[in-house]
């Protein structure tokens, strides 16, 4: 009982530092996922281009991301970008996370594009639409709808993965918890606290994705 009361104490008294961390996690996740989305879209289009060299480039990218731990990708991009290109730490973190999520998002979007019935493309083409116009106006809007649940899921993974940037020194949610924990030696309370924050974020996102899914379902 006393332990639980203590946890609540820590939870309530630490809110201001955690809100700072939350803000960093939020900015980091938002920036990295928006960028990852466009990276993913780009590589998805390469993969379905039917042009051998472009497909090969996309495969290589996805293979590298899948084949190495995220923490290694973050460290390489962090030291590469901050030491050599003098890019600020925040953007190095964004780059590492976007580079990683982009590969998974590419696979999600590619799968969604390929799941759209062949007749849709043919209907567009038969009306005189070019390949790219058919892609933009007919295939992609349907593919995105179909991809919403998987994209939502990937975004949740991306937000949780963003905690790894604390290892390059960022004071995101997890960074704050680590710092507070080691300062007070009360690790458990701070890690419980940070778990609650993540659960809350994921809950909000889940509700949001469900809403969007319902909204989009009107045409089905």
């Amino acid at each position: 009982m006393a332990a639980i009361m203590h946890f609540f104490d820590v939870f309530i008294n630490s809110y201001d530092v955690f809100l700072d961390g939350l803000w960093i996690t939020f900015k980091l996740s938002l920036a990295s996922l928006v960028i990852a989305f466009f990276i993913g879209l780009f590589f998805a289009v390469l993969k379905i281009s039917n042009i051998r060299i472009l497909e090969w480039i996309a495969d290589a990218y996805i293979w590298i991301v899948r084949g190495t731990p995220l923490i290694v990708q973050i460290f390489i991009l962090f030291y590469g970008l901050t030491d050599i290109l003098l890019i600020p730490m925040f953007w190095a973190g964004v780059a590492g996370l976007a580079f990683h999520s982009g590969a998974y998002i590419a696979e999600i979007i590619r799968g969604a594009i390929q799941s759209i019935e062949k007749g849709q493309r043919e209907a567009g083409r038969s009306l005189g639409m070019s390949t790219s116009l058919t892609m933009r106006r007919i295939i992609l809007p349907q593919a995105f709808r179909r991809a919403v649940p998987s994209l939502g899921n990937q975004f949740i993974i991306g937000i949780k993965d963003s905690s790894l940037v604390s290892f390059i020194g960022m004071q995101d949610l997890f960074g704050v918890a680590s710092t507070m924990g080691s300062n007070s030696f009360d690790y458990l309370s701070y890690f419980f606290t940070v778990a609650v924050y993540y659960l809350f974020i994921v809950l909000v996102l889940t509700v949001l994705v469900n809403r969007i899914e319902k909204r989009l379902a009107v045409s089905d």
């Binding site: 019935e117 849709q120 209907a123 038969s126 009306l127 005189g128 809007p141 709808r145 045409s219 089905d220």
Partner: peptide
């Protein structure tokens, strides 16, 4: 693409744009 504009096509499975 210009030629296809001049030749309309109706498919067995309609292929309407569901969105």
């Amino acid at each position: 693409n210009d030629i296809r504009q001049r030749v309309g096509m109706v498919f067995q499975h309609f292929n309407l744009f569901p969105h």
